[in-house]
């Protein structure tokens, strides 16, 4: 099996596991950990794509809330200082990408004429 096929197989399994977890979470878990979700059903299908994609995070948060390990003070600490780091890294990435793109642009070699290096038979006979 090629590398690409292996990656796609892993993706398939990731999504299958996510589908199973979304069933468990949306039918059982969500009512237990969020009172605002009780009796609210129409919005639940909207949550499925995210559970398929980030189910390990869903499991972790579900566990923390079920186990009563939630630390309330952490809810009010936005990572504002990280924005500077993120902005610098993004700017560096954009700059690098643009540099690589622009510096590697080729022009069609219209002025290079075909060159006959040797007549037939000269080189290989």
């Amino acid at each position: 099996m090629s590398g690409a096929e292996t990656i796609l197989l892993l993706v398939r399994w990731w999504l299958i596991i996510g589908a199973m977890i979304s069933v468990a979470f949306l039918f059982i878990g969500i009512d237990r950990i969020d009172e605002d979700a009780r009796g609210a059903y129409i919005f639940r299908p909207l949550l499925v794509p995210a559970i398929l994609l980030i189910w390990p995070l869903v499991l972790w948060r579900w566990y923390v809330l079920e186990a009563g390990r939630e630390i309330w003070s952490k809810h009010y600490r936005p990572p504002r200082a990280s924005h500077l780091v993120a902005a610098i890294l993004m700017a560096a990435g954009i700059g690098t990408a643009l540099f690589l793109g622009l510096s590697n642009r080729q022009t069609w070699p219209a002025d290079i004429a075909p060159e006959r290096l040797s007549a037939p038979g000269e080189a290989n006979e």
């Binding site: 070699p109 075909p114 060159e115 006959r116 290096l117 040797s118 080189a123």
Partner: peptide, 11 residues
């Protein structure tokens, strides 16, 4: 087939 020799091409 008619051999035309060795060439250097751009393209």
């Amino acid at each position: 087939p008619k051999p035309l020799g060795r060439w250097k091409l751009a393209g």
